[in-house]
């Protein structure tokens, strides 16, 4: 049985997928995950999930974010005057980064 492993580096961070292990049950999966994925890199917590329990939908199944121009959804579209609040600037920067990474324009 295959178990997908998700590692969280520090308290409060997200658990992100880091690999998988072969194990007969949940208890063994946790032990193997700790050994294989928790030792070298900083680790605060690990999740193990049976692979069969993971649902997947990919870019062939669906056009993520749609196929139309949704510029109206981005803060970068709107021009304002004066200095924006720092959290608004931060949000706009995160959006600009996401927009670039989507790379479908």
């Amino acid at each position: 049985m295959i178990w997908e492993v998700f590692r969280q580096e520090k308290t409060g961070q997200y658990h992100t997928h880091c690999g998988n292990v072969h194990a007969p049950d949940r208890e063994m999966a946790k032990q193997f995950a700790a050994i294989q994925h928790g030792r070298r890199k900083p680790t605060n917590s690990l999740w193990v999930v049976p692979r069969d329990e993971v649902g997947e939908i990919d870019a062939e199944d669906v056009a993520f974010g749609g196929t139309t121009d949704k510029a109206y959804r981005w803060a970068t579209t709107y021009k304002t005057t004066g200095e924006d609040a720092r959290e608004v600037v931060e949000s706009e920067d995160e959006q600009a980064t996401a927009e670039r990474q989507r790379g479908d324009d």
């Binding site: 997200y14 109206y72 959804r73 981005w74 803060a75 579209t77 709107y78 021009k79 304002t80 005057t81 924006d84 609040a85 959290e87 608004v88 600037v89 931060e90 949000s91 706009e92 995160e94 959006q95 996401a98």
Partner: peptide
């Protein structure tokens, strides 16, 4: 974690609102 995603999206709301005001 919910706030991470909310704040990511919310900048558009505020700037769009400001754009209407302008």
């Amino acid at each position: 974690h919910a706030m991470d995603k909310v704040c990511f999206e919310e900048g558009f709301h505020v700037k769009h609102g400001e754009d209407i005001l302008r």
